[in-house]
Design a binder for these strands. Structure first.
Lengths: 336, 336
DNA sequence: ATGAAAGCGCTAACAG
DNA sequence: CTGTTAGCGCTTTCAT
């Protein structure tokens, strides 16, 4: 019922080997023959059997994307970047998620789900220390990391230290001196970004000889609700900050809401700056350090494809994508 | 180098057939034998070769998800629902996108990319008339549709007419009489929701004996920017509406922004209601008719799995998920 | 309950 | 440039 390469070969009056070569665009096929084979295949609605091809060739023709979450602005935007690139290639995109500490999802190992089914892997925002990442790396497949960098592995990320520093410095230059930070990571979390961003925050403060008040450091867990709660905490303190650096836009959104529900206005009584360049940041008039999130995905995908294609293992490319400060209404000089 | 079923068979002192049966949990295997095989396989780090298994069995063990977009709140949330279900099964999730009229992405046919590589398909928000959907359906694979319903095919959707009617009726009950609608679809678009939602809007208006002013119908293209532009258009008219029903929350967000930049306030001079229950709607205090987006994905995935598993083709299930009005600050009685 | 053997549909040397 | 011939690693009758 299903038509095979043999049927095509027969109909075209050639061998299956020739059909295989012709259809895959391999050299050493007479153009006339190739044309004919193609025509016949098309007319018969022939579709190559991926499983057979994979079994025979050893290549799977698909790449795995591993992400802690598929919903969420950052993740879905990265994913869309990856997808646009893969769509153009002939590679299939296999989507896998690993348990998320934040959501407390059960965390069964991904490596087995990857093992003989992909030619390469892209991971999104998995920390270097993450056991899952480790097991994926130990598969020895071509790999592209997004959001973090590890020696010897290709990666695309931003300079988190610089981004945080830019946001903080911006607030400082506006004249703020009591600056709070809403950090992302839950205790013991494995993601790198929060640490680096904290360092950037500290560097900016120290360079300006500003005191860093431990009571002005609260956790926002990278969520809107978390940011709101964190900000509420900050606002109920005796000695309020005049500005807040949130490690992500979504936390900043929550913070803005908290500010408003206290009868204050972001950019007036309290300045707020985030990191991301979230779709909604413009709408909400949030000052932020934008990162090219979709590009992160695109770049990683391209890098992975070239790794897979080249025979010799090329030197891992560690790309650092640019970020830029976007000043909006949520940040302004401190009152009076 | 890679270890095969034969190695395991040998090590366990049984035939490859028995290993296959034991590992797959098939009946007619002595429990002792099964245990031993499992143990040996585990100790050898044996991983079944999917391609070989697929070739031999004819099942692909993967399901395809087709979406017009992967970024965007609705799509990524649906996708995450699908993913959670598939993660629990042994099915691989193959992500494919089809060209989006809105984004004008080139639209190469998906059917070939699906043909012998998936056991079933889930489509997100593809219109019944969409050529891509048609070609997918003609593949004859088990299929679950999300966001639309077609006779004879399993689907999960909401009652778009009722949802739109609920939002509109809410505005009417508040006392509004000049009510505008921000529609979604670009001219000639194929998606069903905008049509149904428009019908719901009309029904509500007619039941209240309210005139429907054609100048109060503008297109927002389902985007924030589109909604903002649409609202601006409405506000620059001589006879402004006192309330606006936006067919999606993102358009409503844009509309709220436009309202504000005209020095007005949503829920004061102008009431706004949307549809979606978008993550940000609470933050922005938007009245909306919420739909269980993640559940849509979950339900579709479960339905598809059961279709694939059952031998006889079961009657297609057309699930309609519930929606509910959430009243927030963006809607209130008209001024004086 | 288990084994033997025949493919599944293609690719990849190897000849020619 | 093209054909022959082995497999790739598993599943699945069919026997036993």
């Amino acid at each position: 019922m299903t038509i095979t390469i043999r049927d095509v070969a027969q109909a075209a009056g050639v061998s299956t080997a020739t059909v295989s070569r012709a259809l895959r665009g391999l050299p050493n096929v007479d153009e006339a023959t190739r044309d004919k084979v193609k025509r016949v295949a098309l007319s018969m609605d022939y579709v190559i059997s991926p499983s057979a091809s994979r079994l025979a060739s050893g290549r799977t023709g698909s790449i795995g994307v591993i992400t802690p979450r598929v919903a969420g602005w950052y993740f879905s935007t990265v994913l869309s970047g990856i997808e646009t690139v893969l769509q153009q290639s002939t590679m299939d995109l296999l989507l896998l998620s690993v348990g998320d500490e934040a959501t407390g999802t059960p965390d069964d190992p991904v490596a087995p789900r990857l093992n003989r089914r992909v030619d390469g892997v892209i991971t999104i925002a998995l920390a270097p220390e993450d056991a899952q990442l480790q097991s994926v790396l130990s598969l020895g497949l071509p790999t592209s990391l997004i959001g973090v960098a590890i020696d010897g592995v290709s990666s695309v990320s931003i300079d988190d230290v610089a981004a945080a520093k830019a946001a903080t410095t911006h607030l400082i230059k506006l004249g703020h001196r009591r600056i709070a930070v809403i950090t992302g990571a839950p205790p013991g979390a494995l993601f790198t970004a929060p640490h680096a961003r904290f360092r950037g925050f500290m560097e900016a403060m120290q360079q300006a000889d500003l005191a860093v008040d431990p009571t002005l450091q609260v956790r926002g867990y990278f969520t809107i609700a978390g940011g709101e709660k964190a900000m509420t905490e900050l606002l109920t303190q005796r000695d309020r900050p005049t500005a807040v650096f949130a490690m992500s836009d979504e936390m900043a959104f929550g913070a803005m809401r908290a500010v408003r529900s206290h009868g204050l206005q972001p950019g007036r009584e309290i300045s707020i700056a985030g990191i991301d360049g979230h779709d909604m940041s413009e709408l909400l008039d949030l000052t932020t350090v934008a990162q090219p999130v979709q590009d992160l995905g695109r770049i990683a995908a391209k890098s992975l494809l070239s790794q897979i294609r080249s025979t010799d293992r090329p030197a891992p490319a560690q790309v650092q994508a640019p970020t830029h400060l976007i000043v909006r209404g949520s940040s302004a000089p401190p009152p009076n």
